[in-house]
Design a protein around this nucleic acid. Structure first.
Lengths: 344, 344
DNA sequence: TACGATTGTGCAACCGGTTGCGCAACTATG
DNA sequence: CATAGTTGCGCAACCGGTTGCACAATCGTA
């Protein structure tokens, strides 16, 4: 079939082991021999077979990425695309390959992950899911298989994870509204089973605390994690005797629903009610008015996850790493009070 | 390290070759032996090493996916995510792994692809790019390496490709507007170096022809492939002496810009000008008014690409396959004239 | 009972690399 | 000139599986 190390060896008049050492740039090979062999390799268009190398080296130079089975929220923001770009860039730079795996349900996801691990097709794993209870994670811990989770995980200290600073993000968004003069600020989000959801809420509360604003349960509305959910949640807040003058909405898609509800009520954004979203979905800047949102650096999340994993694979350092990627508030019209708006 | 076939053989009191044949469910092994070996395998928690199998079988059971280096338009619609899901599902079902590769520029993309091929890390490739001139494609053809392109390609017959029916899509969108009573229909798009762009335009013209409407150059505006480009293009059409009463916009993101331009002019959508977009971006249904758009079945694109490739890998059938995935017009308010709007 | 056909298993080579160790040739030293 | 030390390369085993072929055991039949 294609040219092997033996073919090269024969053509160069040396042993296969010599060719191998040339590839590895082993210092025990003389310069002259090296040059000759390299020459022949070039002429014969030789490339070492990665599979054979993997077998001999007991290392695949491949990391596996497990994509969540249902793409859930992924639909609206290009989370997955960006995280893969980040992982890909890091892996490529470090000479690693990226094997992608998924499953149509949670059970299949578990099985396909186990398969990668058991059949030793990958050296390590990146998990793009952060469920509270996770069979896969338990299994990996038990097997002492190297992996890193994107998104914080309850089992905090025992595992590697990379996450954006959701609490800070919640704080910053809320603080921004407070500094715009708001005192009645609502919080709209999805269920708290999502780890990041709770974090964002914590940040929100912390900000209220910092400015001695009391948190009121009336200003909290949790609904389904979709445009429609945001719409319903806002309708609920609007039906209160006391309406908030601003809302922190823990996801852009929900925020779009929130905006729809506000407009439907004949109210203006931001004059009557200001809105801040999260994730800085590409469309945040295109809605009317453009939505203030907390930007998440998803590429960095992926890049860092890969770096942490590969570092761990290449050193025997077994210390678990935790990386927090900062966020950034992108201020747009949906949250700017009249006075400052003139500047724009 | 981990359990090998030899360990199992020893424990079961048979030869390694027998264990191998049990794994392969070879009929020459007696039922009794099979059961015993399977039992031992279970007890020892044995999984065959995928790398070793690959080496022996000269097949990696892996397909490579090359992601375009810049994610360009990908930002708005979850194209990449969906296509990967499709590929993943098919591959998984067929017992294949998916190796993901990319590069930060076109040259690196080429090199990393060559590497996968030359080092024999994958059995076949799926290319997510469809450039008119493509070094990678030329190389693969020369090497007779199995691959399929997502998106039509000029070298039509010589290669496998999977694409959605862009021409039909353009036709349907235009036809829809004509049936709403429009006779002055504009076309807004990006450059025609994108293959699909030209196809959509062809469909548009064909529809005009079918209904004996003359095409006017004045109604054509090509701009940058972004919201801003759509905005500029529409401004241009609006500055014409004769304005169109409807526009076909070859991409949703551009369509959002188009809508912005129309509103800015104080015109109403759809009453004054109707708009139709393409790709059915998730946000199409959330803008005001909701945007009529041609839905692209990206998951199917990926799924089919993988199926075509794997079929080709497993049969010696060398006939090149071409699959066209249909599209679907999703009619929303942005293109419905008053009379019919009542029905909603 | 003897012999060919059938069935079940093992031996050993092979896939394409890597690497410990040994040995030959060369250089330096007394 | 003999011996010890260094340098450069090859032999052969190994990574963990697969598979062609040989051979022993069992069965059917004359």
């Amino acid at each position: 079939m294609s040219v092997t190390i033996k073919d090269v060896a024969k053509a160069a008049g040396v042993a296969a082991s010599t060719v191998s050492r040339v590839i590895a740039d082993n210092p025990r090979i003389s310069q002259k021999t090296k040059e000759k062999v390299l020459q022949v390799m070039k002429e014969m268009d030789f490339y070492p077979n990665a599979i054979a190398r993997s077998l001999a080296n007991r290392s695949t130079k491949t990391i596996g990425v497990i994509m969540p089975h249902s793409s859930e929220q992924v639909f609206v923001n290009p989370f997955f695309t960006e995280v893969m770009r980040g992982i890909g860039m890091s892996a490529m730079k470090r000479g690693y390959n990226v094997l992608f795996s998924t499953g149509s349900d949670i059970e299949e996801e578990y099985r396909s992950t186990s398969k990668l691990v058991n059949e030793q097709r990958v050296d390590g794993l990146i998990l793009l899911t952060s469920r509270i209870k996770d069979k896969t994670i338990d299994e990996l811990i038990k097997k002492k298989f190297p992996f890193v989770v994107v998104g914080k995980h309850p089992k905090l200290e025992n595992i590697n994870w990379v996450d954006n600073n959701n609490q800070e993000a919640g704080y910053t968004a809320t603080e921004h509204l407070i500094k715009q003069g708001h005192k009645s600020i609502g919080f709209i989000g999805g269920e708290f089973t999502y780890v990041f959801m709770g974090e964002r809420f914590k940040g929100y509360k912390k900000a209220l605390d910092s400015f001695s604003i009391e948190f009121s349960k009336e200003f909290l509305a949790l609904e389904e994690f979709l445009e429609e959910g945001g719409y319903r949640a806002m309708k609920k807040l609007l039906s209160n005797k006391k309406r908030p003058t601003a809302v922190v909405v823990a996801d852009d898609l929900m925020a779009f629903g929130v905006m729809r509800a506000i407009k439907e009520e004949g109210l203006r954004i931001p004059q009557d009610i200001s809105v801040v979203g999260f994730n800085d979905t590409p469309l945040a800047s295109y809605v009317d008015p453009p939505l203030t949102s907390v930007e998440i650096f998803v590429f960095d999340l992926g890049y860092n996850a890969s770096e942490v994993l590969i570092n761990q694979l290449e050193q025997e350092d077994d210390q678990k790493k935790h990386i927090i990627v900062p966020t950034r508030l992108k201020i747009r019209k949906s949250s700017i009070t009249v006075r400052r708006q003139k500047k724009l």
